[in-house]
Design a protein around this nucleic acid. Structure first.
Lengths: 160, 160
DNA sequence: ATATTTGCAAAAGATTTGCCGCACG
DNA sequence: CGTGCGGCAAATCTTTTGCAAATAT
């Protein structure tokens, strides 16, 4: 049996390789951070997480990498308000969407399998090949059904 | 019959008044520009159009106004890539969506009446009151059905 | 009258880039 | 080994802000 100890490439690293990108140490780290993220970090946050794994990384590189990966379609950029771009890995097929609580900026994810199919049809009808999409819902948390509750302080406020 | 010559308030101005905003000359102009726009201008463009109507307006005011109107829910901010925020008036009820041609940044609008209803249901199910939404589709123009056409130079390239 | 708004220019943020030594393939 | 990459800091670009003067209600 073939022994394959090789540092277990992260999913994103795998994609980078498939796209023919030169895999440097910092890209590998960033790829790993991205692969492990299950939220929507902005560049600053990615930088912080990458630094924790390897101290030889600069923000500039994170910016460059993130841009590169977006161009390759490996990452998608999001704008949830708050001035900074946020990123998440492209999910092929199983898209998920975001509901943003306009009171505290919290992001809730949801899925709707039929939805992407619908979008593909619409793009097609308009003469386009579907590449990707972005759906953001903005809403206000409803008070729980019993007694009226004050708006704030329900969940921990997190700056958007 | 009552003669009403009063400068015919623009739709957006009307909304501003309903929201109790102090209507200054520059706000009136910006409101008019916004009311008349049927595209998705960025601040720079709004400023240009406003200047054409009244020279006593500064970009700072456009920024301030646009932010104010967004907070009031009168305007919605869009991010079609390209670094600058774009704006368009909120359409109550009849939402429309955007399909962005990833090759030239052109934006095509489309509607889907059932869609908003679906989104309202989803928000509701998640315990939120629907406030607004944003849907962007990214696609690549398909070649017309006959002979295969080279990718570029199909439509006039417009910097995204 | 008086709290708000505006213009201007400076400041703040976020992101990009030039240059040059260094690493990857 | 050569070409592209990363670090650093300066540059760029968009958006925000402080302050005094102007204005709406």
């Amino acid at each position: 049996m073939t022994l394959r100890v090789q540092a277990a490439e992260s999913r994103i690293e795998q994609l980078c390789i498939e796209h023919g990108l030169k895999m440097t140490g910092q890209r590998r780290v960033i790829a790993r951070v991205l692969s492990e993220a299950d939220d929507h970090p902005d560049v600053e946050e990615l930088y912080r997480r990458a630094l924790a794994l390897d101290s030889r990384i600069s923000v500039a590189t994170v910016y460059r990498t993130v841009r590169l990966l977006e161009e390759k379609g490996i990452l998608e950029r999001r704008d949830f308000g708050g001035g900074r771009a946020r990123y998440e890995a492209t999910e092929n097929g199983r898209h998920h969407y975001h509901l943003i609580d306009i009171n505290n900026g919290k992001v809730i994810e949801f899925e709707d399998p039929e939805h992407e199919e619908l979008m593909r049809k619409i793009a097609d009808r308009l003469g386009f090949e579907f590449v990707s999409m972005r759906l953001e819902l903005f809403g206000r948390k409803k008070a729980p059904v019993e007694k009226a509750a004050p708006a704030a302080s329900t969940t921990k406020g997190k700056k958007a």
